[in-house]
Amino acid sequence: MSKGDRPDRQDRSGSPNRGDGRAWLEQARHFAEEFYFGRYRSTIARARRDQDDLFMLLVFSEMMGVPNPATYYTLELQPLLLERFHDWHRRMGMEHSPLDHFRCC
């Protein structure tokens, strides 16, 4: 089985509910997941952020002077991206929102 349950066994050797198979399985799954995802968490988060940034660029392209035929549809998405937009401009080193029509702070 997964090696995730190796430490699991050690961890819970003294625990009273050893017979509880379901909890044990749950714990094993948790360890396996940590084992699978832990090492690459930051790489994947970074890749995901890059994709999100590209998406944001598409949504706000019209405001930055890049014509976008899908503006009519992306306009609706703008409020949903408000929070992420704020994070984005801070990450890009801009204290305040760079867009005149889109003030988040």
Partner: peptide
């Protein structure tokens, strides 16, 4: 931050 800095159980960390 849940991404780079994550306090991890020592057995899992040893495995990694």
């Amino acid at each position: 931050d849940g991404v780079d800095y994550v306090p991890t159980n020592k057995f899992i960390l040893w495995g990694h």
